[in-house]
Computed example of a mutant assay.
Amino acid sequence: MLATIMSIAADGGGETPVNPVLPTMPELLWGTGLFLALWILMRYVLLPPVRAVMRQRDEQRLSDEEGAERAKVEAEKVRRDYDATLAEARAHASTTVDEARARGEARRAELTAAAESDAAQIRQAALAEVEAERADVLLGARSQVAELAGTAASKVLGRTVDPAVAQRIAETYLAPSEN
């Protein structure tokens, strides 16, 4: 085979050899025509819908970003309102607790005063009752002491002592001393 190629090369064949890398004129015309047809098809038929979809996607992205920003602002506003409402509720609760505590303290003081007043009345009544019992006991004891003193004086003196005189003497000595 090498011999054939060498003989053709030496012969020259009369024609210039064709470079297989460089295209011929009909190939150039066909290539140029198909390139132009493909370019026109891409430019006017295929590319506009792709650009429209890209434009829609960009508009949708911007719309979504604006919506997200609005939602963020709204969420921040809601959080501030919530915090303000919570602070107001805490203040109201604190005020209510303080008022209830004050009412409770007032009621406790009122009940304590009433209980102390009742206790004082009961104490006074008990003291009066004790004093009355004491007076009754002393009255009974005076008459018995006067009788006993009269009997004792009669035995010591050897004569009868008048019970009225013994009663008067016993009352004199048994009378409560005034300070």
Rank of each mutant, 00 (worst) to 15 (best):
Gln56Leu: 15
Thr85Val: 04
Ala170Cys: 02
Ala106Gln: 13
Gly33Val: 08
Glu116Leu: 11
Pro48Thr: 06
Ala125Trp: 02
Ala87Pro: 00
Arg101Tyr: 01
Arg107Ser: 02
Leu62Lys: 08
Arg43Asp: 12
Pro20Trp: 15
Ala135Val: 02
Ala3Leu: 08
Ala119Met: 09
Val53Arg: 15
Thr24Tyr: 02
Met6Cys: 04
Ala126Tyr: 06
Arg123Thr: 10
Trp39Met: 15
Asp136Ile: 00
Ile5Gly: 02
Gln60Glu: 15
Thr172Trp: 08
Glu65Asn: 06
Ala175Cys: 04
Glu15Asp: 13
Met54Glu: 15
Met42Cys: 09
Ala91Trp: 06
Val130Gly: 01
Thr160Ala: 07
Ala91Ile: 05
Leu41Glu: 12
Tyr44Met: 07
Glu171Tyr: 00
Arg55Met: 12
Glu15Phe: 11
Ile169Val: 15
Phe35His: 09
Ala100Asp: 06
Ala84Val: 10
Thr151Arg: 08
Met1Trp: 02
Arg101Asn: 08
Val73Ala: 15
Glu99Asp: 05
Ala68Trp: 10
Gly104Thr: 05
Glu88Tyr: 06
Arg108Ala: 13
Ala153Trp: 00
Val156Glu: 01
Leu111Trp: 07
Val97Asp: 02
Val165Leu: 06
Ala126Ile: 01
Ala113Gln: 07
Met6Glu: 13
Glu131His: 14
Thr160Lys: 07
Leu38Phe: 11
Ala119Asn: 10
Arg70Trp: 03
Asp83Pro: 00
Ala68Lys: 03
Ala152Gln: 01
Arg90His: 13
Glu116Val: 07
Arg57Cys: 10
Ala91Tyr: 02
Ala37Tyr: 01
Thr95Ala: 13
Leu139Tyr: 04
Ala10Lys: 13
Arg107Glu: 11
